[in-house]
Design a binder for these strands. Structure first.
Lengths: 149, 149
DNA sequence: TATACGATCTCTAGCCACTTCAGGTTCAAG
DNA sequence: CTTGAACCTGAAGTGGCTAGAGATCGTATA
């Protein structure tokens, strides 16, 4: 009884966890719901109480999300970190796959940038001379260098 | 009667429009539903029949979507192209805003790339030596150069 | 002309990763 | 003891589609 109360005493409610990790309260509850975070202890009034392990796990999740890992990927990484040994190859594969994806996105966004520059330049502000090239340029796919037609 | 039938005759069903523009049938219907495409004529059996104007409008939409314009932005551009004159400034503003966003994304993805490279390199495949740095790296936010903590 | 079969129809639900809302309960400070 | 912020659950909404069920349409062939 005393022990339980003591333990509970050094646990924090969800709002403090949110402030500490920079993850919104609703998002934390969502992560619990989809199984990224284990169900925490509860106060007598049924409120969530979190400890050190939760902070660390949530920090891990946040970092990975900031890096753009999809939730499934994070789930996999968490599974690996839970039972260590044999984990490395798989973790490496996940990271490399994700890196590939990021590079793909960069490549694609670069060509978008080029074409948007072209389109925006087509009418760079002159009120009189413009009639309006931007809309023409968007209507005409033939001039652009985009791959996915 | 005759005229109506004749007009209908040179219109195409949704599947042909899909093939011509590279936009899926379901997506075309969706665009109609959200007001990007006007409601087309219908056959006697209630099937959609599209003409030239629809092809052009859909091509415009597809091109803009390929460029990553959000649907709301496209709606605005379409409104502009519908009533010409005075449109240019606004169209230019929309394009430039989108270009800014694309550049932001590129910048952000570049730093992700750098950090993912670091993380992936932390354990580049050696089975013996690894124990596993990837998960450590992900757990530790302090080493990374990402801005949004 | 009958039939078969692909194309189309509407409506609904699902996807991701949350966010927002409504309507209620708990906790801690004064 | 009262107040008011923090917390609770469950459901619905977001964007931009995608997928499925189950019915109807249109047309090429027998």
């Amino acid at each position: 009884m005393q022990m339980a109360a003591k333990n509970l005493a050094r646990l924090m409610p969800i709002g403090s966890l949110a402030v500490r990790t920079g993850v919104k309260v609703e998002t934390i509850r969502y992560y619990e719901q989809v199984g990224l975070l284990p169900q925490p202890e509860r106060s007598e009034g049924n409120q969530r109480r979190y400890g050190r392990a939760h902070i660390e796990r949530l920090a891990f999740i946040k970092h990975a999300r900031d890096l753009g890992f999809p939730v499934d990927g994070i789930r996999a990484l968490l599974r690996l970190s839970d039972n260590p040994g044999m984990a490395c190859d798989e973790a490496h594969a996940i990271s490399v796959a994700h890196l590939d994806e990021v590079r793909h996105k960069i490549t694609r966004l670069r060509s978008l940038e080029t074409e948007l520059e072209r389109i925006a330049a087509a009418c760079s502000g002159g009120v009189t001379a413009c009639d309006c090239k931007i809309i023409e340029a968007l209507a005409d796919h033939s001039q652009c260098g985009l791959d996915r037609h």
